[in-house]
């Protein structure tokens, strides 16, 4: 699993990148009450705002971690946003994306580096 400085996690699954937010981020956000997910088929550029997430405290944007295409979206999450607090690293993934060059993952943090980052 890889991590961004925006507190996203990325996992490679069947040649696609699964993206969600970390447990640390979900704790900081507080109870999540609303999620707006992108449409499947959306082409994104790194740092595009792709997901809107609102907690009891505030609205936050989730940025595209890499260039690529959104190929699958976790639609049920929009009806059960609290899942982001319950299982942020598992069931509460946001979307799966297809990227051209898997080697860009090497530039991201591994778990040890992320733990140090949020330290």
């Amino acid at each position: 699993m890889k991590f961004t400085e925006e507190h996203e996690w990325l996992r490679v699954e069947d040649g696609l990148i699964v993206v969600g937010i970390t447990a640390h981020a979900s704790e900081q956000l507080g109870d999540v009450v609303f999620i707006e997910l992108p449409d499947e088929g959306t082409e994104v550029v790194k740092d595009d705002e792709v997901v809107v997430i609102e907690s009891v405290k505030a609205a936050s944007d989730i940025l595209a971690p890499l260039d690529g295409e959104i190929v699958e979206v976790n639609t049920p999450l929009a009806d059960d946003p609290g899942k982001v607090n319950e299982d942020p690293m598992g069931d509460a993934w946001f979307f799966k994306m297809k990227i051209e060059d898997m080697s860009v993952l090497d530039d991201l943090m591994d778990e040890a580096a992320y733990q140090k980052f949020i330290g």
Partner: peptide, 9 residues
């Protein structure tokens, strides 16, 4: 602003 139970709880 909150205790460990959290705002919603």
């Amino acid at each position: 602003v909150q205790f460990p139970l959290g705002v919603m709880g």
